[in-house]
């Protein structure tokens, strides 16, 4: 069970960050911004959460077992999956028109 928990921790962190940033974005845009987007503060908040989330993967990477056995490699790959997903799916906070 602990192994399974380790296996899903990286993707779970992605799921949490994805939901959190999507929710924050919805909340910020509902606050009555114009079509041009959020003011600097709200965008900085989104970027901040994203960066903090990326940093949060570091301890997970450290927790992941080392070694080349399959049961050691899988949790490591899983953390990388979570990290890659966080980078790719949430990078739009930096450049894309927000509201």
């Amino acid at each position: 069970m602990r192994w399974l928990a380790l296996l899903i921790s990286g993707p779970m962190l992605w799921a949490f960050l994805f939901s959190l940033i999507y929710a924050l974005h919805g909340w910020a845009c509902a606050g009555g911004s114009g079509p041009e987007g959020l003011d600097g503060g709200a965008r900085m908040l989104l970027i901040g959460v994203w960066v903090l989330g990326l940093i949060a993967f570091i301890p997970l990477l450290r927790l992941a077992p080392s070694g080349q056995e399959r049961h050691q490699r899988l949790p490591r790959m899983a953390v990388w999956i979570g990290l890659a997903a966080t980078i790719v799916t949430l990078f739009p906070v930096t450049v894309i028109t927000s509201c």
Binding site: C29, G37, T89, L90, V93, S98
Partner: peptide, 15 residues
């Protein structure tokens, strides 16, 4: 839905 939110889901759909 605003373009930024669409971009999250577009990126996830591609990924």
């Amino acid at each position: 839905i605003p373009h930024m939110a669409l971009a999250f889901f577009s990126a996830a759909s591609v990924l």
